[in-house]
Design a protein around this nucleic acid. Sequence first.
DNA 1: ACATTTGTTATGTAGAACATATAAACATAA
DNA 2: TTATGTTTATATGTTCTACATAACAAATGT
Lengths: 228, 228
Amino acid sequence: MEKLNRDLQRINPPTMADIVEVRLIEFLKKKAFKPGDALPKELEIAEALGVSRNVVREGLSRLKMLGLIESRKKRGMVFVNPDILGTFEKILDPLILDSATLKDIFELRLVLELGLSELLYRKKTEKDIKELEKIARNQDVEDNTFRIKQEIAFHGKLYEITGNDTLKRFQKMLLPIFGYVTAMEDKPIRGKISHLDLVEILKHGSKEDFNQGMLEHLRPHFDHLNEF
Amino acid sequence: MEKLNRDLQRINPPTMADIVEVRLIEFLKKKAFKPGDALPKELEIAEALGVSRNVVREGLSRLKMLGLIESRKKRGMVFVNPDILGTFEKILDPLILDSATLKDIFELRLVLELGLSELLYRKKTEKDIKELEKIARNQDVEDNTFRIKQEIAFHGKLYEITGNDTLKRFQKMLLPIFGYVTAMEDKPIRGKISHLDLVEILKHGSKEDFNQGMLEHLRPHFDHLNEF
DNA sequence: ACATTTGTTATGTAGAACATATAAACATAA
DNA sequence: TTATGTTTATATGTTCTACATAACAAATGT
């Protein structure tokens, strides 16, 4: 009957800091804060919420980590536009995440890279293709760390071609995961479709061909991941 | 010369709490913590780092928010598998994000939904299509809030069909953004391709047809967003 | 008019004290 | 023996006070 642990998950009563965190975010939303707007002082917040300054500081500290607020001595605290992806980067690490989540994220990457082709075919230039081909050419190396670097360079370039900064940063975030998965593979796993094949498709093939090619290219990694 | 503010961003010297946060995450990685493993006590950490317990608690509080650790009285603190998306949800709110980021995220959604078709065509069943069609049928309503709900239901169902939990949650996270963008549109904007059209393609068309259809379906929203 | 000093203020850090929950050990009763 | 109370030690949760530090403002001096 140890299954109970899975069915009935542990209750963790929220601490004051948890509540303060939520209330502060609500406050920011409700008051429609704009970047640069000043927040009340710590002591005022503490008094308003009926908790100690210490607890308020814990809550504020969390918002600072999220990049929602910045603080400076004497001047006080101001609301700023959060850097969404920056927060993610902190925990998106193979050493921290469990294998199930790793697999999920790899799936997400697959979907993302398949959806990429639309933008890719819209934005690609001759110059881009040339650079991509150059990257793909030096692939026949046995050195494992180099292989990973090369892998990253190629796929990174693909994102770069789309010209979408958010996408590029998102991919950069996912890199540790991808690098980890690739490094786990003792022997280099190569799909039916190589990087050079993809470049060739990009040159003469259709969007749909590229989608199919990318799918084949990523499939072996994906299969490998499914074995746990 | 006020442009300098954008080019040279303000330096905010890291506080002790910032450093503790980084050092703790490093510590977790280096020691290869597994879920359930106990961390040192607050006082021990404070002593080891040479800071007050107060500062340590601020750092720990941040990790708690990220879902990296949990703490219970007497027992101490334990490492847990972080809920990545949970963290995201807190700041992914139209009221908090700036319009540029909103646009980026909407783009991300576009790419995601285009990449979805591969999984969609693999996993879809007769039952799924029926349900999707049912959702799509009651669309001709003038009520704005209902229209948004219906929009969410349709696209949500698409993600659901893929059977990928992470994707589904990711989409759920992005919903406020999508809802916000849709609500901004005073008059209902309809693309050339409706939900019912998409269902029809899903029934008889190819993967590529669906991709093209989805692109057309989302385009007007996307164009609208480009006008700021 | 400009530079220097001084004071004020809000955040940053430290340390001590007490509250509270709870794991662990023990005691009790069915 | 086993399930249920009771006690105790302990690590986190919370509060309070005090001081350090940086930044802004006002007063002062040259």
